[in-house]
Design a protein around this nucleic acid. Sequence first.
DNA 1: AAAAAACTAGACGACTGGTCTAATATGAAT
DNA 2: ATTCATATTAGACCAGTCGTCTAGTTTTTT
Lengths: 210, 210
Amino acid sequence: MNVSSLMQTRTDSTRDHILATGRGLVAQRGFAGMGLNELLKTASVPKGSFYHYFSSKEDFGCNLLEQYMSQYMSRLDEILTTKGPDARTRLMQYWSLWTSSQTSGDACVQCLIVKIGAEISDVSDEMREILEDGTRQIGMRLSEAIAEGQADNSISQTVEPDLLGAALYEMWLGASLVAKLSRNRDPFLNAMATTELMLPKPHQHTKDMI
Amino acid sequence: MNVSSLMQTRTDSTRDHILATGRGLVAQRGFAGMGLNELLKTASVPKGSFYHYFSSKEDFGCNLLEQYMSQYMSRLDEILTTKGPDARTRLMQYWSLWTSSQTSGDACVQCLIVKIGAEISDVSDEMREILEDGTRQIGMRLSEAIAEGQADNSISQTVEPDLLGAALYEMWLGASLVAKLSRNRDPFLNAMATTELMLPKPHQHTKDMI
DNA sequence: AAAAAACTAGACGACTGGTCTAATATGAAT
DNA sequence: ATTCATATTAGACCAGTCGTCTAGTTTTTT
């Protein structure tokens, strides 16, 4: 065959439309819970088109997750690069945005790692690996931000960036799960307070300093 | 142990057998991913029996989760009451057992809150409320244990039990999710190290005490 | 205009959760 | 022991869903 698989058609809009519609539906019903008929009816796309763009439901799921993780990493990097004067402020801003996005009730911004991570982990190795890679990258980026905070003197040198980055990320994933169950933002407020304690600022004017 | 798992002659043995089989299947495939036919074929139980004992799949799910949470709370209470000389040791033993159970690969002991919490939270209010209640109870029991540790002088007075109990629980839920994705126990080791830091022993000979 | 690729359309069989009637086992009352 | 009511089992059946597939139409390229 030729390079037809690499060719880009002008009208990828159908494919993108299926992916966008699917994200909302998956965030609401889960992956197994979202039927293809429901997806395609919602998107007003015939079933034949779906199997033109994706080889299977799992392939669709992989593309959905890859797109999601890619966009998430870009956004994370933007926040941790620009949204604040120092690394600690930017980190706290990240948790703050996490809280507001996960309490908005808007299905499209729901964290897909929380929503379908456990569901697909024992079912689809291909999808699992995409999320595994995503969580690894996010954890690393957070650890990096903590190290930056130690460099710009907004975070105490007493913490270990690698350990703490992963631990904070895990705590916020858990908080999201509990928040989904309890339908309120208390778990996030709790995680926020704990995060403040776990990311201590350097001691500046205590008696033992100076 | 007992004969009920081998014989189905006793009255409720069929019902219990369906629940036990369902727990393993749900832990593997998720709730929507487990079909009734698969469940009943695995359990060698005709469909008529299922609808004699349960009014619907959701009703079955509720009973499954209620039984699970009830057994979990009993086990948690046993650990936090007997498995160690002081409250802090008993708490650490709880996380240690969490780690080994979630890394065993045995589907039957998988944490159902992690596995199907997010999945069902937007689909079944009835099931969601059961898990909501369960997470609340577990968090409270952990906070209680931390307070006990402060009372028996195994945990520093500087921490706030309510905040910390919930935060630790959330971190371990998140660690379980990440561990399911990465298929290794690193997230648990990480959570364990962080837990040690978050549950400080009392300072015994510092200058500010006396 | 012809050939090839991109895309649409919906039929298809296996399966889904759920309902239904009938058959059988059990236990209490007589 | 016989009867009768209840508890439980059995699985055919329903309308609908699942993901797959082949055939057909439109668009692009040559």
